[in-house]
Design a protein around this nucleic acid. Structure first.
Lengths: 212, 212
DNA sequence: GCTGAATGCAAGTAGTTACTTGCTTTCAAC
DNA sequence: GTTGAAAGCAAGTAACTACTTGCATTCAGC
C-alpha cells in the first residue's frame, strides 16, 4: 500500500476517535507509520488531507438490494435491515464526529447521506411494489414511514454503543426483526392480529460489528 | 444576572457552536463579557466549567404531558409531538456536539437522554392506556414502535437544519402530524383505510425554533 | 471614610499545534 | 555504479492553548 493510502486510512481512524480538531497531524503520522513531514509533502495541509479522506470514503457504499418481485416481505426485509444496520455501524464513529462538525465542515453531509438516502430510495420502491402486488395498504404514507424507519436505523447504529442501554430496549440480535415488523404494520403489510414471529437474522458481520 | 450564570450561558452558546475543543476559554469569556481570569477564578478549570454547564442544563426538561384518559389519539398526540420536536430543536446544536464527543465525555449522555427517555416513558404509558380503552391493538409491539418514534423525532430535530432537504421529505409544518399518523398505524390505533386527515399543528414556539 | 471582597487588566509560563527548512538516507531505474 | 525521486530526521517558527501571577479598580457594608 502506498504512502498516500496509508495516511488516508490512518486519518480516518484517528478522525473517528478524536474528531477534526483532535486528529492532530502528529497522531495521524504515527498511526500511519510515516513521518509527519511526509504527510504535508503528500497533501499540503491538514484541511486538504481531510477533504481527500472524505472523497475517498464516499466511494464505498455497498447497500444491499431488495428483490424485484416481492413475495414474503418479512423474510426479505429482515436480512436487508440487518445488513443495513451492520453497514451503518461500521461508520458509526466517523458519522458521529462528522455530524457534530457539520456546521463547520458541511462537505461531510453528502458523504454521510449517500448510504441512508440510497437505502430509503430502495425501500420506498420496494414498498411501492408491495402495494402493486396487493401486499401493502395503498393508503399508507410510505414516504413518512420509510423516513422514520431510516431514522430509526440511523439512531440504532449511531447510538447503541454510546447511550445507556435503556435507550434501546430491543437486544441487538432481535432489533432488525422488530424494526421491520413495526414498519410493515405501519404500511399495512402485516394485518392486525397477524401472528408476528420474531425472526432473528443476525449475520456474522453483525456480530463482528457489535463486538468491536 | 451574576457572573457565574453569565459564564455558564456563554459557555453553552460557544460550546454549541464549536464543541469542547473549539470552545476556548478566551471565546467564552468574550461571549460572556467578562475577563478570562474571572472564568478561572469562578470555576477553576475549563473541565470544571463544562461539568457545571452540563449539570445546570439538565435541570430544564419540561416535556409536555399526555392526557390520563385518552379520547382522540390523533388530536392528543400531534400537539404533543410538535412540542417535543420544538423542545429537542432548542438543543440541537448542543446535542450534536455532545453526541460526537460522547466517547471522550460520556457524562453528557445522561443529560442528553433524559428528555427523550422521559418522552418515551410517557408515550408508552399513553399507548398502554389506548390499548386498555380498546383504541389500540393489543398485539402491537409498543416498546419498539415507541423507540422508533423517538428515534425519528431525534433525527428530525437534530438533522433537519444540517442535512440536505431530501433527507426529510415532510415539510416542517406537516411533520408532526405525519409522524403521529404513521406511529398510530404501527400500534393499530388507526384502522387500515381510515381517513387520515392531515392536521397541521404548528405552534408559535415551533415556528420560532425553526426560524432561528 | 474605611475595609474587603469581587472583578478587571497586563503580562507571562509552559505546552501544543500546523507547517517549514535543510539535510541525510534509501532504493529502484538506467 | 550513478542518478534522482521519495522518504526520513532534527530542528525550528509562529500562533494558540489553558492557566497563573501581581496589581489596580470598583463598590457595597459597616
Amino acid at each position: 500500500m502506498d504512502i498516500r493510502e496509508r495516511i488516508l486510512q490512518a486519518a480516518a481512524r484517528v478522525y473517528a476517535q478524536h474528531g477534526f480538531r483532535g486528529a492532530t497531524t502528529r497522531l495521524i503520522a504515527i498511526e500511519a507509520g510515516v513521518n509527519e513531514v511526509s504527510l504535508f509533502r503528500t497533501f499540503g495541509s491538514k484541511a486538504a488531507l481531510f477533504e481527500a479522506m472524505m472523497q475517498s470514503h464516499s466511494a464505498s457504499l455497498p447497500v444491499p438490494e431488495l428483490p424485484e418481485r416481492p413475495v414474503d416481505p418479512q423474510a426479505e426485509l429482515i436480512p436487508w435491515c440487518s445488513l443495513l444496520l451492520a453497514h451503518m455501524r461500521q461508520w458509526r464513529s466517523i458519522i458521529r464526529k462528522s455530524f457534530g462538525e457539520l456546521e463547520e465542515r458541511p462537505e461531510a453531509a453528502v458523504v454521510m447521506c449517500e448510504g441512508p438516502n440510497c437505502a430509503a430510495l430502495a425501500l420506498t420502491a420496494y414498498v411501492t411494489r408491495l402495494q402493486a402486488a396487493g401486499l401493502a395498504d395503498e393508503t399508507a404514507d410510505v414516504s413518512t414511514a420509510v423516513s422514520m424507519f431510516i431514522s430509526s436505523m440511523f439512531g440504532d447504529a449511531v447510538g447503541r454503543d454510546v447511550l445507556p442501554p435503556d435507550a434501546f430496549p430491543q437486544p441487538v440480535e432481535d432489533a432488525p426483526a422488530k424494526y421491520v415488523n413495526v414498519f410493515l404494520r405501519a404500511v399495512g403489510a402485516l394485518g392486525v392480529g397477524d401472528v408476528v414471529p420474531l425472526r432473528a437474522a443476525q449475520t456474522a458481520d453483525d456480530r463482528r460489528a457489535v463486538a468491536q
